[in-house]
Write a protein that binds this DNA or RNA. Structure first.
Lengths: 339, 339
DNA sequence: ATTTTTTGCTAAAACGTTTTACTACTTCAG
DNA sequence: CTGAAGTAGTAAAACGTTTTAGCAAAAAAT
C-alpha cells in the first residue's frame, strides 16, 4: 500500500530517478532531456497518479510549503473568518496552513512557535501575545519569513498587517459624541499590546477633541481570561458605578457581546438610555434589537495582504519592510442613536 | 542557521548517532546503553535544545503526527468551535492539525484529501461532501485512520461521530406543536446527506406524531451555495407562499440567521405571529429579541469523541467500528412561545 | 583526423532520522 | 581454559526526494 515513488516511474520508463525528477520539476529543457523521454515520463507519472512525497522533498529542499498560523482563538468569529481567508489565499500559492490558538497565553504561544519550528513551516503568520517579542526577534534573526497580524511590537522591525485601531476607536467615540452622548466610557481588555493601547488612545483622543472630560473612572480594563459570567458581572458592576453614564464603547467583539447581555440584564434601553458601540461586525450586532453600531474590520483585505506579504517574503526576501495599517469602517446602527 | 541534529549531539558526546537516537527515544534500557552515556547525551541534547526534525522522522517512520481536518466552512461558528476543540484535544496526544474548508464542494474536498494525503497526514477527520463516498472507501481500504463527522455514508463502514439529527429536528418540531403552533414549515438545505435527511425525517415524523398534516409545500430546500441576500429572498418568498403558516424550523445555523432577518423584513412578530426554532446555538440566538429556541449540539463532547476515536485507531487499530450518535439539546427560548 | 562542443542522461551524495544487523569486549559456567 | 551468554555500543541501510558533478556518444569545428 506504499505510494508511488519517483523510482517506480524511473523503472517503468527505463531511465534514472534523476531524469524523472528533472522532468517532473519542469527542468527538462534546462537539463536537456529529450522531448521523447520527457513525454514518456509525464505520461507514466500521470497514469500512476504520482504525487511527490512532501516529507522527502521538504527534507531535501528545506521547504515544506506549509505556513503556521497562530491566532488568539480560532473559535472567535474574527479569527475564524480570517483563517478562512488565509487558507484560501495560501492555497493559491500551493501552501497549506497549520493553525493554533494562543488564548493570549504567552507560554502557549511559545509552545506553538516551537512546534511549528520543528515541523519546519516555511513561514509564520502570528497574532503575538504579550512578551513574545524576544521570540519574534529570534525568528527574524534566523531569517524566517513572518508577518504579525492584529497587533505588533513597535520596537521590533517586522512585517505586519493590522487595523488602524486608533482610528477605529476614535471614530466610534467621536460618533457617540456627535450623537449627543455626554459621558462615554470604554470597556476594554487589560493589555498593553498595540491593538488595545491604540483603541484606548483613540478613545481618549476623541473625548479630548470633543471636549468631553476624561477620567480614569471611565475606563474599565478586564482580564482577558475571564469567562462570560465573570465578564458580565464585572461589566455590570462597572456600568452602574459610573455616574450619569450615557454611552459605552466595547473594545472587542466578545466584550461587546457581554456588554449587550449585561446592559439588558440591568434593564437599560440600548440607544436611548445608553449609547453603545462594539468592535468587529457580527451577526448579533446586525440583527440585535436595537442593532449595534460597530467598528468593522476589512477581514478579506487584511487576510489577502497578510498572505501576500508573507509570500513576497518567502519568494524574494527583499528586505523592504511591509507595515500595513488598514482603515476600519464605522457601521452606524441603532445602538448609537438617541431618538 | 541550521538546526541542531542528532549528529551534532553525537559528535559532542563522542558517540554514534545511533546511540543518541536510542537514548532520545527512551530506548536506552532496551538497547543497553549505559546510564553514564545516557545521562551525558540527555544533558547535551537539553543544552543544545535539540528538537528532532519531524520531516526526517516522518520520512523514516511514516508517521507525521499530523492530522487533517476537513470541515465545511471554518468561518462557520459551529465548525470553528469544533476546530478549536479538535486542536486542543489533538495537542494532548502531540498531534498538530492541518485544516481545510470544502464549502460543501466535492471537487474542493477531493483536492483537500489529495493534498493531505501527499503531505502524509497520519489520520483524517472529515466532514464529507456529497459523492465523497468513493474517496472515503479508498482511504479505508488503504487502512488510513479516519473519522467522519457531522454526517456519514450509511453504506460505508467507517468510524463517525455525529449528532442525532433526527431527534434534534423531531424535538424542535414536537416542541412547536406542543406550544400550539398548527402549521409548521421547515427551511432546509437541498442535500441528501445524512444530516439533512435526518433533520427532514425528524421534522415529518414529529408532524405525524402530533397529527399535523404534512404537505410538500411545507418544505423549502435551498441550494447551499446561495449568498445571504439570495437566502433572504428565497425564504421570504417561501414563508409568504404558505397559507396560515404559524411556525418554521430552520435546519442550519446560517439558515436560522437568514430566517430571522427575513421574518423581520416581513414585519412578522417572532413567537407570536410565527414560531421559530433554529439549529446550533449562537450568540445571536441567545441575545436576540425575542431570544431564539434552538437545537444545540454538544460541541465539546463531539470534538473529544472525534479525536479519541481517531487516536484509538491510530495507535491500536482494533477493527471495532465506532459510530457515535450524540444527543442534541433543545434550548427553549422565547421564539417558540406564543404568549 | 583530431579536438572541441553539444547532447542526453546518470551516479552518488545529501537532507536527518530510525532501525536492523552486527562487532568487540567482558563475564560466567563448567 | 573453552565456549556461551551478556554488555555496550556502532555501521550502514533505508525513507523519497533534489542536486551536483560528470560520463559517453554524437556532432561540429579545426
Amino acid at each position: 500500500m506504499k505510494g508511488i515513488s519517483i523510482k517506480d516511474i524511473a523503472k517503468q520508463a527505463g531511465v534514472s530517478p534523476t531524469t524523472v525528477s528533472f522532468v517532473l520539476n519542469g527542468k527538462a529543457k534546462e537539463k536537456r532531456i529529450s522531448e521523447q523521454v520527457s513525454k514518456k515520463i509525464q505520461k507514466i507519472a500521470a497514469r500512476l497518479k504520482y504525487k511527490p512525497n512532501q516529507l522527502a522533498r521538504g527534507l531535501r529542499t528545506g521547504k515544506t510549503k506549509t505556513i503556521g498560523l497562530i491566532v488568539e482563538d480560532i473559535a472567535n468569529n474574527f479569527f475564524a473568518s480570517l483563517a478562512k481567508v488565509v487558507e484560501d489565499e495560501a492555497d493559491k500559492y500551493g501552501y497549506k496552513v497549520l493553525y493554533g490558538s494562543t488564548e493570549d497565553n504567552t507560554e502557549k504561544a511559545k509552545g506553538l512557535l516551537e512546534v511549528l519550528k520543528y515541523r519546519q513551516v516555511d513561514g509564520y503568520i502570528i497574532t503575538p501575545t504579550k512578551n513574545l517579542d524576544k521570540e519574534i526577534e529570534l525568528l527574524q534573526t534566523a531569517a524566517k519569513p513572518l508577518v504579525l497580524m492584529d497587533r505588533y511590537f513597535p520596537h521590533v522591525n517586522s512585517h505586519y498587517v493590522v487595523l488602524d485601531n486608533f482610528k477605529g476607536a476614535y471614530d466610534a467615540t467621536a460618533h457617540l459624541a456627535k450623537q449627543g452622548y455626554k459621558k462615554i466610557a470604554i470597556v476594554t481588555i487589560a493589555s498593553d499590546q498595540t491593538q488595545m493601547k491604540d483603541r484606548l488612545d483613540g478613545f481618549t483622543a476623541a473625548l479630548k477633541d470633543h471636549k468631553i472630560p476624561f477620567s480614569k473612572s471611565l475606563v474599565k480594563r478586564l482580564a482577558f481570561d475571564l469567562d462570560r459570567e465573570a465578564f458580565n458581572t464585572e461589566i455590570k458592576k462597572f456600568l452602574t458605578s459610573v455616574k450619569d453614564l450615557d454611552a459605552v464603547f466595547f473594545a472587542t467583539n466578545y466584550l461587546g457581546i457581554a456588554g449587550i447581555e449585561s446592559i439588558r440584564a440591568l434593564g437599560w434601553q440600548i440607544g436611548k438610555e445608553i449609547g453603545l458601540v462594539g468592535f468587529d461586525d457580527h451577526d448579533l450586532f446586525r440583527l440585535h434589537s436595537p442593532s449595534i453600531t460597530c467598528v468593522s474590520q476589512p477581514i478579506a483585505t487584511i487576510g489577502k495582504h497578510i498572505v501576500e506579504v508573507l509570500m513576497n517574503e518567502l519568494n524574494h526576501p527583499s528586505g523592504s519592510l511591509q507595515q500595513m495599517v488598514l482603515p476600519p469602517e464605522l457601521i452606524v446602527r441603532e445602538s448609537s442613536s438617541r431618538k
